[in-house]
Design a protein around this nucleic acid. Sequence first.
RNA 1: GGGAUCGUAGCUCAGUCGGUUAGAGCGCCUGACUGUGGCUCAGGAGGUCGUGGGUUCGAGUCCCAUCGGUCCCCCCA
Length: 424
Amino acid sequence: MELRYRAPEGMNDVLPETSHLWQQLEARWREHCHAYGYREIRTPIMEYAELFERSVGETSDIVSKEMYVLQRGEERYALKPEGTAPVVRAYIEHALHSAGGVQKLYYITPFFRGERPQKGRYRQAHQFGAEIIGTALPYADAELLAMVMHFFQSLGIPADALELRLNTIGCPECRPAYREAVRTFGRENFARLCKNCQARLERNPLRILDCKECVEVTAEAPPIDPYLCDECRAHFETLQQLLKTLDVPYRRDFRLVRGLDYYTRTTFEVVAEQGLGAQNALCGGGRYDGLVEELGGAPTPALGVGIGVERTLLVLHALGIPLPEPPTLEVYVVAFGDIARPTALQVAQQLRHVGIATDLDLEGRSPKAQMRLANRSGARFAVLLGETELAQHAATVKDLHTHEQTLVSQTELPEWLRSRLPKS
RNA sequence: GGGAUCGUAGCUCAGUCGGUUAGAGCGCCUGACUGUGGCUCAGGAGGUCGUGGGUUCGAGUCCCAUCGGUCCCCCCA
């Protein structure tokens, strides 16, 4: 059939058969964050475009070719292409530092990037995010990484299905020297680099390190370690020791340089062995010690993570991890004949008022059709109302598992059912 | 932005060398049972074969274009 309207390319509907999984995942994320001392923050779905141009970087792919920009009058907005910059903006705007200490903020948000969709990559995607703002110490990095791995583990993803990749990209003090070293290396091996890397060698030489096409060449590229300043080296070494203490396995990956300009020091991602196709990063993040200041706040070190919700769902599915069943109805009310319909509605309301999930036919169907719907609904009990029951102010309750039928007075009905339904 | 691949019913798919009215399973609706579900049986609704053009006496089938889905490069969650 030719569809007149469809969802925009790369944007998906979450239908009832899967929305309960989203609810479940979201609930788990909230619980998890609360257990680690985070509080939720919600920011608008769009920001002034300049916020992302300043933070993510004008030359980054995200800003230069993937951002959805809306113009209204003089104002330029952008649908958020990532979650960190808005949180930092809100942190500054509302002076959250004044509460004292470290701010731990979590969120659940859609984000938008105008790319060609493929498996695990969409134009509207969703992410679970967590940010720790206000500490430069590696304890925060270690706790964040432990929390992320703990989250995946709590969903039932076995540890050997995931790999935490960890790197440091230094700070504005020491990175320039390393950047030069990589650039020099690139020039020396110019002919062996792909066209893309040849082009970006001058503009952003570190990016050649995570180019898949150039892995053979860049395997010989210099590692950052000798270039790190004392502070960055100490930070990274302590972080690695802490991860060992916390039993968080990781792999050092000196190619891991991220595509957003604001990262400093620690960068990381978690990749899945299977289920995700080419886009195999389940989450990514790192430190952004310069961002708060860059956006007009006081110099404030910080770090954060973004977890792809769609990708997490794909991995859970691919690994065959049992996911919770959708909630079903508990009671279905059946009216025999139009005469019983008003009472049926009334009885359904009574049951709903005491928290029993109840439904009934609203289109005047035959008793048989109503029973079919009762059966299909997953309800444990059918409440049958006909002339006989009406005359006695009662209802026939049918247990749809055992087929047992019992006559119960309408006043006792809610309690009768409640005591026989599993507690939720 | 570049590439590969696939478009027939709500879903999964058949459809011969181009040949009459385009099929199946599942799902949906109705009935067998006018107050009783699941199983069974019978019946029914639902398709401009993605769209447009071309070749032909004749196109779901061949050719061209176009739109859409999926996946890949790029990039990233």
